[in-house]
Simulated scan of single mutants.
Amino acid sequence: MEEFVYLIRPNRSNFIETMTQEEANLMDDHFQYLKDLLAEEKLIMAGPCLDGAFGICVFKSDSWENAEAIMNHDPAVSNGIMTSELHKYRVSLIQGK
């Protein structure tokens, strides 16, 4: 397994302040998606910047293609409310390990 990180960025700068109910529902779906990845032991960590600029998802996958699929199936990405960017990544230090 390799490690990857994807960054997501809202499709507008004031997303948090102007989120519609539909977008809020999609963000709930996004959070559940990440919780499911955690339960499957694929997710290492995830979270947003508190200023809303971007979020990150650090996870494990067996290939670049599967990593892209994981990123692209994130409801925030697949529904176009967030743009995404995928990179190979290595967790060098992490608390508790």
Rank of each mutant, 00 (worst) to 15 (best):
I81W: 06
L38V: 05
L7P: 03
A24V: 01
N72I: 01
G55I: 00
N72V: 03
T83W: 10
E65D: 14
D62G: 02
T18V: 02
P48V: 01
L93P: 06
C49D: 05
L38M: 12
P75G: 04
I16M: 07
A39C: 06
S61F: 01
V5A: 13
N11S: 03
R90E: 15
N11L: 06
A24H: 10
D51V: 10
H30T: 01
N14T: 03
D29I: 04
R9C: 14
L7E: 11
N72S: 05
F54Y: 14
V5G: 05
G47A: 11
K97Q: 11
H73S: 10
A67R: 06
L93G: 12
E22L: 10
E22W: 00
D74F: 01
R9S: 15
L93T: 11
L7W: 14
E2M: 13
L43R: 08
E22T: 03
E2K: 14
I16E: 10
L43K: 06
E17Y: 14
S78I: 03
Y6P: 13
Y33G: 05
E3R: 02
E23S: 02
S92I: 05
F54K: 03
C49L: 10
V91G: 10
E40Q: 03
D51A: 11
I70H: 13
N25F: 04
V58T: 03
A46L: 01
I8G: 02
F59H: 06
A76R: 08
Y89M: 01
K35N: 07
M82T: 15
C57F: 15
K60Q: 14
A46P: 12
A76D: 09
A39L: 13
T20G: 00
E23V: 03
E65T: 11
E68N: 10
S84F: 09
M71K: 05
T20L: 04
Y89E: 01
R12L: 05
D62V: 04
G47F: 14
M82L: 14
W64C: 09
N25K: 05
R9Q: 15
A24S: 09
